[in-house]
């Protein structure tokens, strides 16, 4: 009886392993990491400025819809991407206006902005198409996939690295740009300083709120790209609540990466991996619903393990 159980389990492990080492699985890891990594970079920039941006989820969702609308009306995916980025920045503008200007509670504002986005996207979608669920009525244009010369000819590795969506490659550039921004530019120094000690920055005669505003705008632009990936690359078109928690998973990834671009990228890759794994678990006969639980469970477990390991002697108000 138990022997049977273990042999089944062993067979399952072998099956999973055989899936994991295929190039198509690793290709999908990179593909699924893209939106999480963009959201993570978005979280990172704002968090380093001392604003825990929980509304990235909402910003991505809003950008996903605006990107689709933009590309449908201009028939250009690049203008659609631009619309999505602007939509993400608009969302940051809202957050800045409420939180920095009207001094609203950050957590509650972000929660409200997420449900604002959820409602507004359906509202706009319904007004434009008469449909509440998807944007199939809009002739949107997807971002192209790019086949990279030379790399595509390398066996195995080429199948993983080449042929990804153009946004996936742009994401690599975004990570590098964020690292340069934070560590090599004046604005980056200000951003980190505001996150560490806003009083010190104010004493130096610089408005902490202004720096936070810039950081939020950058954060919003990156979240906008993430939204564009969701509706113009991951899936063709907008579906309601399509971001499904990636903006929150990003917060966990950013926390696990200590707010460092490279470490956060690795954490985002872990979540992209679990996302991809969940998509493949059905081959083991796991029900669709159980498979969909996996990425979220892994996020909770990873967050708990991470904070448990790094837990200092009882903080009163711990950060992420």
């Amino acid at each position: 009886m138990t022997g049977n159980f273990f042999s089944t389990m062993w067979a399952n492990i072998v099956t999973i392993f055989n899936i994991i080492i295929t190039s198509s699985f690793l290709y999908s890891v990179l593909r699924l990491t893209t939106p999480i990594l963009l959201a993570t970079m978005s979280a990172l920039v704002s968090d380093r400025a001392g604003v825990t941006n929980i509304s990235i989820e909402g910003a991505m969702l809003f950008a996903a819809l605006i990107g689709v609308i933009g590309s449908a009306y201009t028939q250009s995916c690049w203008l659609g991407l631009l619309c999505a980025i602007l939509a993400g920045m608009f969302f940051s503008l809202l957050l800045s206006f409420f939180h920095l200007k009207l001094k609203t509670n950050l957590v509650l504002t972000c929660i409200a902005l997420n449900s604002f986005s959820s409602g507004l996207t359906i509202f706009i979608l319904y007004m434009l198409t008469g449909d509440r669920g998807t944007s199939t009525a809009l002739p949107s244009v997807d971002m192209p996939k790019v086949s990279i010369p030379l790399i595509r000819d390398i066996p195995f590795v080429g199948e993983i690295l080449s042929g990804q969506n153009v946004l996936t490659y742009m994401t690599v550039l975004v990570v590098i740009a964020v690292a340069i921004l934070l560590y090599k530019t004046k604005l980056g120094i200000y951003i980190r300083a505001v996150g560490e000690s806003p009083q010190a920055v104010e004493t130096a005669g610089i408005s902490a709120n202004r720096i936070r505003f810039y950081a939020l705008l950058i954060s919003g632009a990156i979240a906008g790209m993430g939204g564009a990936f969701m509706s113009m690359a991951y899936i063709s078109g907008f579906t309601k609540d399509m971001v499904s928690g990636r903006g929150f998973i990003a917060l966990a990834a950013e926390a696990m990466g200590h707010g460092q671009p490279l470490a956060s990228t690795l954490a985002a890759l872990l979540f992209g991996f679990t996302d991809s794994l969940a998509n493949n678990l059905q081959v083991l006969g796991l029900s669709n619903d159980l498979a969909r639980m996996v990425p979220y469970i892994i996020t909770i477990v990873a967050l708990a393990l991470y904070t448990w390991r790094s837990a200092k002697p009882k903080k009163v108000t711990g950060s992420l």
Binding site: I300, T307, K314
Partner: peptide, 30 residues
């Protein structure tokens, strides 16, 4: 999770909402 390992309750609860939804649907359908 907050009391024992100091994990941010908001992120964990937002994730938990998805877990519970799919768990409930699994129980219901199965």
């Amino acid at each position: 999770l907050r009391a024992k390992v100091n994990a941010n309750e908001m992120v964990s609860s937002l994730m938990l909402n998805y877990v519970v939804l799919y768990f409930g649907l699994y129980i219901l359908k199965s």
